[in-house]
Simulated scan of single mutants.
Amino acid sequence: MMMVSSKTFSSLQFFTLLYLFTVTFASTDEATALLKWKATFKNQNNFVLASWTPSFNACTDWYGVICFNGRVNTLNITDSSVIGTLYAFRFHPSLFLKILILA
């Protein structure tokens, strides 16, 4: 049986926690871009998008947001009755969005 040093074990724990942190939380730039877009909706107090607040995690708690490796990959806001335009959605260079479903 091979013994693993405590230093190696601590490093593994650190990188595991770092990975879990990055996978769980969307980048601040992505969440900010989505919140700025939501602020332009004519019905920004839409109950379906009530979870879109800075106090909730975009990757785990926001309606219609799906993340991959801690980055917003898919935005599916079907049946949310959003009244707005994509004109106000600033596609930030750091945005990792690949799929956008609005209908």
Results as ranks from 00 to 15, higher is better:
Leu35Cys: 02
Ala103His: 11
Asn76Ala: 10
Pro54Ser: 12
Phe15Ser: 03
Trp52Pro: 00
Trp52Glu: 02
Ser11Gly: 09
Leu20Ile: 14
Leu86Gly: 05
Ile66Met: 13
Ser80His: 00
Ala103Ser: 15
Asn57Gly: 03
Phe91Gln: 13
Lys42Pro: 05
Phe25Lys: 03
Pro54Asp: 11
Ser27Asp: 07
Met2Cys: 08
Pro93Asp: 03
Thr16Asn: 12
Asn57Ile: 10
Ser5Arg: 07
Thr78Asn: 08
Gln44Ser: 07
Cys67Lys: 02
Leu20Pro: 03
Phe41Pro: 02
Leu20Trp: 12
Ser94Ile: 08
Gln44Ile: 01
Ser27Met: 09
Thr24Phe: 05
Thr53Phe: 03
Ser81Cys: 08
Ala39Lys: 12
Ser81Thr: 06
Leu95Trp: 07
Ser5Gly: 13
Leu35Gln: 02
Phe9Asn: 06
Phe15Pro: 00
Asn69Ile: 03
Thr60Lys: 08
Val48Pro: 00
Ala103Val: 10
Tyr19Ala: 05
Asn76Tyr: 07
Ala26Asp: 02
Ser27Thr: 10
Ala26Pro: 04
Leu95Glu: 03
Leu12Cys: 11
Cys67Leu: 06
Phe91Asp: 11
Leu95Met: 14
Cys59His: 03
Ile101Ser: 11
Pro93Ala: 01
Arg71Cys: 00
Leu12Lys: 08
Phe56Glu: 12
Asn45Phe: 12
Lys38Asn: 04
Leu20Cys: 11
Thr78Tyr: 08
Arg71Gln: 09
Ala31Glu: 08
Ile83Leu: 14
Lys7Val: 15
Leu100His: 08
Lys36Ile: 11
Asn76Glu: 13
Leu17Met: 10
Trp62Met: 02
Asp79Phe: 05
Leu20Gln: 15
Phe14Gln: 14
Thr85Leu: 08
Phe9Ala: 08
Phe14Asn: 09
Thr60Val: 06
Leu102Asn: 06
Asn43Phe: 13
Ser94His: 12
Lys7Cys: 10
Lys98Asn: 15
Tyr19Thr: 09
Ser27Tyr: 05
Phe68Pro: 00
Glu30Asn: 02
Ser11Lys: 10
Thr60Gly: 01
Met3His: 15
Leu86Lys: 05
Phe15Cys: 04
Leu102Ile: 13
Ile99Val: 14
Phe25Pro: 00
Ser6Gly: 05
Phe89Gly: 00
Thr85Ser: 15
Glu30Ala: 00
